[in-house]
């Protein structure tokens, strides 16, 4: 769903006529709840110590694999580490990678898209054909390729996911920029003799960015999933630092005997992504309804 939103610029350039109806159908309490969850997640990511006093890497073999209880809300893992603390501490790397890769993807996509839209026919052709090539590859494959070249680790996973999503953004930015460039106010500005860099910075860029930021919100959820996926494959966070994807991978062999090791990190990913998506789509619809 989110991948489609990223890949489908039509959603923004041609706002859906059903926008009002969709907006009405969207449950407001759901959006509010998602907002609250997002605020909580942000707090957890900023300072997990606010919510638990247990260290995430503290092992205690005597209490290994105990189920959820009053003392350990999410149970303990194979080494007796408190899963609640690990899930909380895992929020930061997991969300940070999603955020970082979205930001990098937006920056890269904007640069390429603007350059294509404003760089003349040759530049446009060259850049957009390159983008076409990249878009023809499934994003996860592209990310895996990037990890292979860049090497593993949290930062590289961030970059890899960014590389996977940047082409989608580039295409949207280009389309938006082309529309904006031909709009009346830009032509007026040209008529007033504004220099090109000023024109781009003052008029084209700000008017292109709006829809992009909304898309970025939705894309953030997808980035979290992809980054967790790469971590699940052992390409991301280094043990013993907690990260949701890596924890999910560690827990998958225990689903029948100790479900809590895999389920809670998985819930973390699910809740975060759903919350971000609900808020993102809400913003998207608000924006689409108002844009033109």
């Amino acid at each position: 769903m989110t991948a489609m939103a990223v890949a489908d610029p039509a959603l923004l350039t041609h706002p859906p006529v059903t926008g009002d109806r969709t907006r009405r159908r969207l449950s407001r309490p759901g959006v509010a709840l998602a907002g609250v969850v997002l605020v909580l997640l942000t707090l957890v990511a900023v300072d997990p110590g606010l919510f638990t006093s247990t260290a995430p890497n503290e092992t205690d073999l005597a209490r290994a694999l105990s189920g959820p209880s009053g003392a350990h809300w999410f149970g303990t893992d194979q080494l007796g580490r408190d899963m609640f603390a690990r899930v909380l501490y895992g929020a930061r790397p997991s969300l940070l990678v999603g955020l970082g890769s979205t930001v990098f993807a937006l920056l890269g996509g904007t640069a390429v898209g603007l350059a294509a839209a404003l760089g003349g026919r040759v530049g446009d052709e060259a850049l957009m054909r390159l983008v076409d090539v990249l878009l023809s590859l499934p994003p996860l494959l592209l990310a895996l390729l990037a990890v292979t070249v860049l090497g593993t680790g949290t930062v590289n996973v961030m970059l890899a996911v960014a590389i996977a999503f940047a082409p989608g953004y580039a295409r949207i930015v280009r389309a938006e920029a082309l529309v904006v460039r031909r709009s009346g106010y830009v032509e007026a500005a040209v008529g007033l003799g504004l220099r090109r860099p000023v024109l781009v910075a003052r008029h084209v860029l700000p008017n292109t960015l709006g829809p992009l930021l909304v898309l970025g919100t939705v894309g953030f959820g997808t980035s979290v999933i992809y980054a967790s996926g790469l971590s699940f494959l052992g390409l991301g966070a280094r043990p013993p630092s907690p990260e949701w994807g890596a924890m999910l991978s560690e827990g998958r062999d225990f689903l029948s005997s100790a479900w809590w090791i895999g389920v809670f990190p998985g819930l973390g990913i699910t809740v975060a992504v759903i919350a971000v998506n609900v808020v993102g789509r809400y913003a998207q619809q608000r924006f689409a309804g108002r844009a033109r």
């Binding site: 092992t59 680790g153 052992g234 043990p239």
Partner: peptide, 29 residues
């Protein structure tokens, strides 16, 4: 990787941390 060795490695990391040794475990292809 096999035999849950990554998890065993984390137990070793935790033990050595207690005597002040830091084990870094990067991944490579």
């Amino acid at each position: 990787e096999k035999d849950q060795r990554t998890i065993l490695g984390q137990a070793i990391q935790a033990d050595l941390k207690k005597i002040g040794i830091d084990l870094e475990r990067p991944t490579f292809d």
